[in-house]
Amino acid sequence: MARIRIAAPDTAEPGEIIELKALIQHPMESGFRRGSRGEVIPRDIITTFECLYDGEVVFEAEFFPAVSANPFLTFHTKATQTGTLEFRWTHQDGEIWSQTHALTVG
């Protein structure tokens, strides 16, 4: 189970620019490293991150092997209506981790 930390405001004024922060625990193993016996450590990375605001993608990012472990993102969006923010990470093998946050506007 991946550990996730989200920082987002609970309330916002209509039209306000809000700051969102998302941190997930993940080794982001690049696939280029070797273990103590010389064996290749297989690649194990998150490939995409999306933030959905009431089902609509407002921010997305692609991750590659050079992204460090425990990736941390800070980004902004405009608060328009009361709704749900969903933060979603997709692993290279298709596994999805997500967490939601309720935002009240007005």
Partner: peptide
């Protein structure tokens, strides 16, 4: 206190 990954 949020960004510090140790808090995970």
């Amino acid at each position: 206190a949020f960004a510090n990954p140790g808090f995970l």
